[in-house]
Design a protein around this nucleic acid. Structure first.
Lengths: 315, 315
DNA sequence: GTCGATCGTTGACGGTGGCAATGAGATCGT
DNA sequence: ACGATCTCATTGCCACCGTCAACGATCGAC
């Protein structure tokens, strides 16, 4: 714990205090938004269940419990209560005798519509008390928090490798600059190098011989790689990166694989790359992809002491 | 209500939806931070009471009830429970026979210290899973929400102009590429141009004669501008941009202003810039800042038909 | 001294939610 | 086919959360 405290940035305590202060003060504010429920016949948890059911039209208790993090026992009683009130119906699943399919009745959908309208009205009132600029700031801040704390990439997530879209060459520079500064303390000279590589690629490249890929997980970019021309018969793999949040899913290997395949089809006989000793997981990927270490030499081009490595493999 | 709906900005529904989505998704996230309590002997409400008492050292039930919005009856029982557990002591107030002064015992302060440490640890863990920039944005967004919804009259938004941090030169490229593609359909050649400008700036610049600024609102970058050398006596303003979500706050004017001041101090006699006719709000900013249109010529460098404009002003 | 307001307490009640036990059904290895 | 194991739903039990109403004690104002 002491170790963690000492090597952390100096403002760590301030940040923790800010998050805790937010938790304490936002709870009552959220209470205000709950008050629309008081006029209705339903409690907060019931309303949450109704809301969830309205979104997915058909479900079962286990799924609802997972989604809303409710205890199975509590949920069972709650569903029984809602069924008695006529808001939903339950029947045994024909496919799985353990499950009981839960569905909103017409009355349940009416209840949902009412809850939805009241909630919309209440939030609307809250926003109406704010100026235009404040509303925008509030929504922007909430979206930011949701994006940052939002659900980590789900297990069955959809991974796509595709060409960069507008702005994503910039994303490559940004993530290289931010991540290597965070993780290894590299300075702005590294970001400058990446910007140069990306600018050269963007300015002018033969799409048959040079290409870039973005790895997209659940719609968000989480990785990238470039394949560029070193000389007529040699390709160069550059700017391989995978977001920390998306690591250990084989995304790096997929990107390298794609790059090798492209280089082969583009007619190169050999592919090379330059990396640094501290990037251990990258090293494992290159070894697994058949690259071999050619040479290594120490440098301080990005601040800390590093050992640059050239790797290569025949295609 | 109809009137409110019709004369409201078109994105009213979106904003309401965003706030509601935040409420739904933030609740579970906050639940995670509550889990430190599970290891302790106290429940959430007990912990809140202990926390509040630790802040003010001496209080009474009525005050606690107001601060934490707790029912008097419930609070009475809760305080009795905490007293039985030895965490606090109650005695009649000498000044007011109705009141009973509540104070933490030594054991209660120990309990507070433990809760405080656990909470700090849990929040610290949450933050540790995020990158440096994400941490800053999270804290900035939370502070913004607190400021907007908080009881105190809202302090002015936290707008800062500052030098780019790691990754933010990449951010400049990304936002130019994405925004102008979205708004005007410009193609990848524009992003390539921006990447080139940024790469040249990053590679080598005399900090006395060239500079870049990021406009930061609530911890998140929302705008930028560069001041670079055109020739010995001429500066060039480049890559002015303000995020749509942050427009109409004078941020663009602030950035241009900062740029002019820097150029003057750097010894330039003149400043120029190049822009395009479709960027109307930028044009207003340049006019207000004393720039004058020098010439204009049509081009299709980025896809659609555009009219490029050179502007200049003496310093 | 009376009146109204405030403070704390108590009883009643129902929602919230964790935990353990149970039985029915599904799944899988043998 | 069989049993071990898992999942799903239910039930009982329990403690906490939180509202409501009634009540007595006290205070301040008149």
């Amino acid at each position: 714990m002491c170790a963690a405290a000492t090597d952390a940035p100096p403002s760590r305590r301030d940040r923790i205090a800010a998050v805790r202060a937010f938790n304490r003060t936002y709870t009552p504010a959220m209470g205000l938004l709950r008050e629309g429920l008081l006029e209705s016949a339903y409690t907060l948890t019931e309303a949450r269940v109704i809301f969830e059911l309205a979104q997915r039209d058909e479900s079962d208790a286990a799924e609802l419990g997972r989604l809303l993090r409710l205890d199975a026992g509590y949920l069972s009683r709650l569903l029984a209560r809602l069924e008695a009130a006529g808001a939903l119906e339950r029947e045994r699943s024909p496919h799985d005798g353990r499950r009981r399919v839960v569905r909103l009745t017409a009355a349940g959908r009416d209840a949902y519509a009412l809850l939805d309208e009241r909630s919309t009205r209440d939030v609307g009132r809250l926003l109406a008390g704010l100026g235009e600029a404040e509303q925008r700031r509030l929504v922007g801040a909430m979206d930011a928090i949701r994006a940052i704390l939002g659900p980590e990439p789900t297990a069955g997530a959809a991974l796509v490798l595709r060409a960069p879209r507008p702005g994503e060459l910039g994303w490559i520079v940004e993530r290289h600059g931010a991540l290597y500064a965070d993780e290894f303390g590299w300075d702005e000279r590294f970001e400058a190098l990446v910007a140069r590589v990306v600018a050269d690629f963007a300015a002018d490249h033969d799409p048959r011989r040079e290409a870039a890929w973005i790895a997209e997980l659940d719609g968000a970019p989480v990785g990238c790689v470039l394949c560029v021309r070193a000389d007529e018969r040699t390709a160069k793999l550059r700017l391989l990166l995978v977001e920390p949040s998306a690591r250990d899913r084989g995304i790096g290997a997929r990107l390298v694989d794609e790059c090798l395949r492209f280089a082969r089809r583009a007619g190169y006989a050999r592919i090379v790359l330059w990396t640094n000793d501290v990037l251990r997981s990258a090293r494992r990927i290159y070894e697994a992809a058949g690259f071999e270490l050619v040479d290594a030499s120490p440098h301080r081009d990005f601040g800390p002491e590093l050992v640059g490595q050239h790797w290569a493999r025949e295609l």
